[in-house]
């Protein structure tokens, strides 16, 4: 079943075309990566899907209902964790629930139930400055999840982490995703990350950006973290690089 449908998005800033006729679909429980160079219009596309800005042309549908320019239906996570320094982790994570109008005690309780699943137990009453980078991203992801357990837009969520932390987070993420079935649209410029995590990869290339290729990663889930040193993995990587360099 198609969950999120993006149709013919075109957007320019000051006469400069950034996106041209971008369409994509996200099925339930699927993880689709949007892979492309930095500054290629990926973040603009996310802003449009999140309803933060309007496209010049095109539409965004969630379960058949148009949500173009309407924030509040899909959740959004950035490279920076954006945890508010003056709120404890549980209060940060519960923020989307409070914004939806839930009572404080109720929101804390609901958020608290997920701490174990996200490997955050014991951090409830700590402040973000007391957590490591990997843990902060986990908290940010839980906040994203609590906002909408249907669709998450993740904009390079792990790119600020160092290599080893990133590897640990990937391993954790693959496991957690298997438990929570979140439909995810994932921006990255890291080819390995895209292949490791995705069901499908859309290559967004050129200027203005458009989707020029779609690659299905057939490896079953949950994936082993050593998938990224396998032969199949290298095949996918070669295919992607060939396409990116060919343009």
């Amino acid at each position: 079943m198609t969950h999120l449908k993006v149709e013919g998005i075109t957007k320019s800033f000051d006469e400069k075309a950034v996106l041209k006729g971008v369409s994509l679909e996200l099925k339930e429980g699927e993880l689709v990566s949007l892979l492309g160079v930095s500054g290629g219009g990926k973040t603009t596309l996310f802003h449009i899907i999140a309803g933060l800005s309007l496209p010049d042309e095109g539409h965004v549908y969630l379960n058949g209902e148009e949500i173009t320019g309407k924030p509040g239906s899909v959740s959004y996570m950035l490279q920076k964790d954006l945890l508010l320094p003056y709120r404890t982790i549980v209060d940060n994570v519960a923020l989307p629930l409070l914004i939806k109008g839930m009572k404080k005690t109720e929101a804390r309780k609901m958020a608290g139930e997920y701490f174990k699943l996200f490997g955050l137990e014991g951090t409830e009453k700590q402040y973000p400055s007391q957590l490591s980078g990997g843990m902060r991203q986990r908290a940010a992801l839980l906040r994203t999840y609590l906002f909408s357990n249907r669709i998450a837009l993740l904009d390079e969520p792990f790119s600020a982490l160092d290599m080893m932390t990133k590897r640990g987070v990937h391993e954790w993420y693959l496991k957690v995703m298997d438990d929570i079935h979140l439909s995810t649209l994932f921006i990255t410029h890291d080819i390995d990350e895209a292949i490791l995590l995705s069901d499908r990869i859309c290559l967004l290339t050129g200027s203005p950006g458009r989707i020029t290729k779609e690659i299905v990663i057939k490896e079953p889930k949950p994936r082993d973290k050593d998938f990224n040193i396998s032969k199949e993995f290298m095949e996918y990587k070669r295919e992607i690089l060939k396409h990116l360099e060919g343009i």
Binding site: G51, P71, G72, S75, L78, L95, P96, I99, F147
Partner: peptide, 22 residues
């Protein structure tokens, strides 16, 4: 931080909530 404001907007927060929480 304008990103934090955008994040709250994407969650559907209006001006009052952005003021209160950020």
């Amino acid at each position: 931080n304008p990103d934090a404001v955008n994040l709250l907007k994407s969650m559907g927060a209006g001006r009052v909530k952005i003021f209160r929480y950020i």
